[in-house]
């Protein structure tokens, strides 16, 4: 068991979920929206969090949707990483999902949970930052759909009681050339030293990183340098490494200096592969 008493809600509609969450907050409770639950259970067990109520969104049809049409791909927030990967509908996102935790946990961890959790890496955000994705949120004003980049700044910035319902990825991104790599210190299944995702649109590379700094990010300055073909590869790589939005992250997995070393090697390989037509 997890060492705290929680009240469990299983709504069947978005309005039920939102109302339950809102009323719990008014009552002074500490509710959490709950999907895969991996992080909530492990952190509760460790005593890092003590939710007093959880609102399980897995039986809400909108949150379970996974379909593609002429407009693109629509992914419910309660879809698991494994469902997204197995669908093969967005290969870059599938590749990111396939490197988070292990396979069995990928069958539980959800897209919404990875984006909204407290673990800093949030690697599923990288393909969404690159692909002009939009996100549907349900809150006090009903449903609103906004650019993903407008509500994701290192982490999701939601309004009180708001819940992530769906992610929408435009059709062009599903077929665009891409690159994804995740470097870890030792084991394949681990948090990233540097995780990078790149997507090409109209010949220009877009690139986003996780593990490199204390939050995932996409940088237009780094993209401008890496797309400047007037400079040699090594110069572009060195220049890009100077443009991080903050000091490189340093922890037991690797120092900031080592992360920069890994980044430069990775960017070298990426640009060489692209130059040689391997991407």
């Amino acid at each position: 068991m997890i060492p705290c008493d929680v009240v469990y809600y299983r709504p069947g509609t978005l309005m039920e979920a939102y109302e339950a969450y809102r009323l719990l907050q008014i009552e002074g409770k500490k509710p959490l929206y709950y999907a895969g639950g991996s992080e909530i259970i492990t952190m509760s067990r460790a005593g890092s969090i003590r939710p007093s109520a959880i609102v399980d969104i897995k039986r809400i049809p909108e949150c379970m949707l996974l379909s593609a049409n002429d407009e693109g791909l629509h992914i419910g927030s309660a879809c698991t990483l494994n469902q997204i990967k197995e669908s093969r509908l967005f290969p870059l996102l599938g590749s990111s999902c396939g490197r988070i935790a292990d396979h069995t946990n990928q069958c539980r961890i959800t897209l919404g949970g990875n984006l909204c959790g407290t673990i800093i890496y949030r690697e599923t955000s990288l393909p969404l930052l690159l692909s002009d994705a939009r996100v549907s949120l349900f809150g006090s004003q009903g449903m609103r759909t906004v650019p993903f980049q407008s509500v994701f700044h290192g982490r999701m910035r939601l309004k009180p009681s708001e819940v992530v319902v769906q992610i929408h990825v435009p059709g062009w991104a599903l077929k665009a050339p891409f690159f994804h790599v995740k470097h870890t210190t030792n084991e394949k299944i681990d948090y990233p030293l540097v995780s990078a995702a790149a997507l090409w649109k109209d010949g220009n590379m877009r690139i986003a990183f996780s593990g490199l700094c204390s939050y995932p990010f996409r940088s237009s300055k780094i993209e401008a340098v890496l797309n400047d073909w007037s400079m040699p590869v090594s110069a572009r790589v060195d220049k890009a490494a100077e443009l991080l939005p903050e000091e490189p992250y340093s922890d037991v997995e690797g120092s900031g200096e080592y992360r920069l070393f890994v980044l430069k090697n990775m960017l070298h390989a990426l640009l060489e592969d692209y130059t040689n037509g391997k991407i």
């Binding site: 399980d56 946990n105 539980r108």
Partner: peptide, 13 residues
């Protein structure tokens, strides 16, 4: 039909 680590699943869900 899919594997799950039962230490990360609540009985109620």
């Amino acid at each position: 039909g899919w594997p799950a680590k039962s230490c990360l699943v609540l009985a109620v869900e």
